[in-house]
Amino acid sequence: MDERAFIQEAKNGDLSAFNRLILAYQDMVYNQAYRLLGIRELAEDATQEAFISAYKKIRTYRGGSFRAWLIRIVSNACYDELRRHKRRPTTPLVPSDEYDEEIESPSWLADPSDTPEEETERSELMEAINYCLQKLSIEFRLAVVLVDFQNMDYSEAAMVSNVPVGTIKSRLARARRGMRQCLQQFWELLPEAFRLNDEASS
């Protein structure tokens, strides 16, 4: 696929050329939306809105990674989708006190609305990971999805998130800590390679 040619034709208003780009990137864009939103229906809506927005903004694309440009657009669409549906508020991964110091307590991870039966329903490993991912705040979730799921480097993730590289580094570290603590609830589900306390027990 001659991506540059299709992009240029799309800039000239050729919708069919842009649709060729959509067919090439729709899986990637949908996965980004799904990992950020966690609900397939919402992810579909965000993906469609993202492509509509991308076509309208195609003239503002100035080169570089077209994939990163699309991920940025779909990430913004996910933000809008979250605001629109006013989903349940996510608990900040690392809450701060009045002195901007982290409150290090594992109790915030416990969800009082969850029953053991509900936890049993999330017995699948992937569901457990997705569950913990959705427990993160959207900024931290975006950082971990961009770096660990989309395999972006820090500078690319910073460009997509529109934040400095240092912020990405900090958010990513905190997100991983939060994921680590969340996944400890499901340690029995985790394969050996992912179990966190094997070294500690040894």
Binding site: V29, Y30, I52, Y55, L125, I129, F149, L183, A193, F194
Partner: peptide, 21 residues
């Protein structure tokens, strides 16, 4: 490191439909 590996093990899912405009 294991947490990172767990997140990276998430599979890619296929788009449920075409999003052509």
């Amino acid at each position: 490191s294991k947490t990172r590996a767990a997140v990276r093990s998430l599979p890619l899912v296929h788009a449920p439909r075409n999003f052509t405009l």
